[in-house]
Design a protein around this nucleic acid. Sequence first.
DNA 1: GTGAAAGCGCTAACAG
DNA 2: CTGTTAGCGCTTTCAC
Lengths: 356, 356
Amino acid sequence: MAQKTSGRYTIHDIAHELGVSARTVSRVLNNQAGVGKSTRARVQEFIRAVNFHPHSGARSLRRQRLDCIGVAVTAPPNLIPVSNDVLTWLFFELNRIFKAGEFIGFDMNPPLRDGHYDYARGVNEQRFGACVVAGPLRVNDPIVQRIHEAGCPYMAMGRLDSFPDVSCATVDYEEAAYISTKFLIDKGHTRIGMLKGLEGYQPGVERDRGYQRALEEAGIPFDEALVRPTTFDSDNNVRITHRLLHDRDITGLVECSGTEDGSSIREGARRAGRMPGENLDIVEWTYTYKASVVSEAAAHVWLPLREAGSEGLELLADWFYERRTDPFQVLYRPILYETPHNGDVEPPRPVFSVNP
Amino acid sequence: MAQKTSGRYTIHDIAHELGVSARTVSRVLNNQAGVGKSTRARVQEFIRAVNFHPHSGARSLRRQRLDCIGVAVTAPPNLIPVSNDVLTWLFFELNRIFKAGEFIGFDMNPPLRDGHYDYARGVNEQRFGACVVAGPLRVNDPIVQRIHEAGCPYMAMGRLDSFPDVSCATVDYEEAAYISTKFLIDKGHTRIGMLKGLEGYQPGVERDRGYQRALEEAGIPFDEALVRPTTFDSDNNVRITHRLLHDRDITGLVECSGTEDGSSIREGARRAGRMPGENLDIVEWTYTYKASVVSEAAAHVWLPLREAGSEGLELLADWFYERRTDPFQVLYRPILYETPHNGDVEPPRPVFSVNP
DNA sequence: GTGAAAGCGCTAACAG
DNA sequence: CTGTTAGCGCTTTCAC
């Protein structure tokens, strides 16, 4: 068979080869009506034999439709280590919800441009026909707004104060911080520490607000020394926990690092000579319902982020398939539950990965 | 500013707006010479103001060059759960090696077509200008050959008997199985069990070959009951280990599941009433040098897969940037070392993730 | 230093 | 049921 010099067939080559028109080949490729049964079979046979696939760029240029669903993270993995569990969950959900064989692409390492990670490039360069923004949004993030303005269906897994119209599915971290703190206040604690994840990101700001609101309501003065930003490095978190708990007057601790890394907390408490469950009441945050992050914790707050995300992804698919036309906002409430004490508890499925 | 009806600017719109030609805008976009200093500044300013980005499809159609480096896995994550560690390593390496701001896309969920996962689609549809095939290759895999024939620079992280020309960077699993088994034979064991990962994949076949070669050399008859295929499910591996070690005559064990999941082995041995280090000599495989998978193991075999991969990625970049033109084959030798007994040992960085 | 025109591979509109 | 034609947005000749 004559092969084009470029080394790849085009539909014109195929049409020529088979003595039909390019339009016919295109029809076969797109499963459109208007091709005789035997012609269709011949074309299909040929396409399969030479392993022909249409050029996605040419295709996207002509139809005004991109067939790639993109996942973009808001920062490189060293800063925002989105865990394998979340990526796996996203794969499964995207494949469950987008059924038409869309290509799913992950852009996991956005370039730094003008001081911001440009995770919008997949949308801007028209690679993505829809985009999931995974990872927390920075305070005053300007990038997600560009995605919004591009008109591409998208869903961020976080809200943004500075851009309230953002299309998103997430949980209410302010509420989570509020109920965590209030729980400890109601148990009689007045000096409550907080191990605060995601400083500089929207979820970090929400933690601050919820914590302060609970204190205010109870008339407890705010002491900034009690709030310690954490990272995704477990050694560091051991140290931070240790240092915070040095203050023996702290009897309650909101552990909202978001790392679900119980062993760091335990080790940090141990080094400070504290015994969770005896002289320290901990409220642990987790993204898994009834997960046992630390069995000695007084309570857990469940952040149903995946659950919110799944609902958001359905809406995103509706938008992509033009069953709806607008951004949406899905906000799930966190739920506080006393730590389950039977041995039958699953470990958390982390949203962020922690080293080591 | 007048905006096109489509909602997006094209270089023609910009040219019209600024009273220059599209060619000039294109020159600015691509940092080419032949534009006056002030004209260039005006164009750049405008582009930035309206957040213009060229259409990647149109661009790839016209130049015969794709600017996306793709990572494709050979099967969906439930079958081949490539771990976050490997993904993260790939991000870092790709970003270290590809320096021209290439887009890096991950296709992590290839569709099933004709009984094979079509992980070549990114190459076939001309989305990827280079492709890393992550994950093991199935025995007789026909897909990677299509990538090869497409002429796109690529690198598989595995060899393939049925297609020896495959461009790859990997380790010699046959040698690994051979030295593991030989080590135990030399210690006097004659009945040696094997927990064999990746049945049905090339690395599984190589394990078989290396194991049998060592036995043959020593004149020990092969007993297929001693070789047990494992999975990436740790509960299952506990059961398989337990069942295998039921045979009290087995005194040596090659643990080449590839999971680096020491606790399953320990638990399986415990259930069978065996004490590693006392009545059982284990050789553990790991992808991390001097990692402690199981401290009671007699020896570890280090599979320098990442190290081979890094060298392969450099060659892939050379190919992509046209500093070389051909496929390559990088094959690293595994190394056996006695298990270090000082407490100063790092845990392995897994290549596959294991549930739970 | 700049612009007009052709064409990459495909699909939509329209004609037969 | 099938073919012709135009044009998506860009880069590349080539001419000025």
